[in-house]
Design a binder for these strands. Structure first.
Lengths: 184, 184
DNA sequence: GTCACCTTGACGTTGCGTAATTGTGA
DNA sequence: CTCACAATTACGCAACGTCAAGGTGA
């Protein structure tokens, strides 16, 4: 049987070692076995259990609640469907959280550069890229910004010093590249 | 000037008294004034500050981070636009969280009724209603369930004992009322 | 023997909730 | 006088992070 030590297992699920130690302590996820020297060894069954735990965690359930669910559950098709649905919701939430994170980053940077009152488009794009946003992500950002809060979007773009026509383009009232690529 | 005591103020923002006490202690939101007997008195300026705090909190920021942002921020139009955007994102998140909550409730109830293996539509609808879901909400639920995970949706509905035609109707491949109202 | 890994504690952190004890005001 | 409010102080909680003091193995 294939087994992993705690740190390797943690990395697979993007968790920290101490998190797994904690889960072991509270009895949420005990490793399948231990080496003769006391090292925790996690197997594939543990991985599956961990996967489900992860889903529930992302849904905001407490560890205690998760423990209870996992204890009483014989997984028939209803559970499977619901858990699938839950996983989808979690993905959508992750998307939104990423956007939130971005907005917050922008606000924080503004706070830390109080003297820089007039920022231009290029600086903003640079900041967005540093924050891990590529062009496609920027397009999506503008689309949902426009959908949710068109006038705030307009105000925001104008505050960057863009002309009315440029603003209109970005807001989707026209088409074509913007953001400094092929300014033609 | 209009002022409120702590509990009244807390209710307006759906917070607990102790939360406000805590915010005062850490210097995040000090009341505008105090009565001669030491009662905290909150005014409209406090309310506006609280509103912003709430927005940032819903975005998942730590109280410390919020404090820093609010300290350095002179609010020009960029901040206003970004904060507006943030508020929108928070609303969307709240929607998704409500859905998550629902799914979780359903899973938990299943866990607590392990003997009830075959549940029918009526029981489900009853459970959904107990969870605070009206018919309109149920429609929305099915629409997004179908959009995100059509085959899980199908599986789920069939597991409730619905016929293929009924399933098709609910999934939007047809139209009309379902869920037991006016069964013809 | 070195070094990166593992072990079990114990204590620190955040954002409050709760309980105890006491003062205020209609 | 009573009763719902206010105050402060203090301890408790989840879900970890972190640090200490030591074993393990390539």
């Amino acid at each position: 049987v294939k087994t992993e030590t705690i740190t390797a297992f943690a990395k697979r699920f993007n968790l920290s070692r101490s998190t797994l130690l904690y889960y072991d302590r509270i009895g949420l996820l005990k490793p399948g076995g231990k080496s003769d020297t006391g090292y925790r060894l996690y197997n594939e069954a543990d991985a599956e259990r961990m996967q489900r735990i992860d889903t529930f965690r992302k849904a905001g359930l407490s560890l205690k609640a998760i423990k209870e669910i996992m204890a009483t559950n014989a997984d028939d098709s209803v559970e499977v469907a619901l858990e699938h649905r839950l996983a989808c919701l979690n993905e959508e939430m992750a998307d939104l959280k990423a956007q939130q994170h971005l907005v917050v980053q922008l606000l924080q940077r503004r706070g830390r550069n109080p003297r820089q009152h007039g920022v231009d488009v290029f600086q903003w794009v640079k900041m967005l890229e540093e924050a891990g946003m590529d062009e496609q992500a920027r397009r999506r950002w503008h689309m949902s910004f426009e959908r949710d809060a068109p006038e705030a979007h307009d105000q925001f773009l104008k505050s960057l010093g863009l002309s009315d026509t440029e603003v209109a383009e970005i807001r989707g009232l026209s088409s074509g590249d913007w953001a400094g690529d092929e300014p033609e």
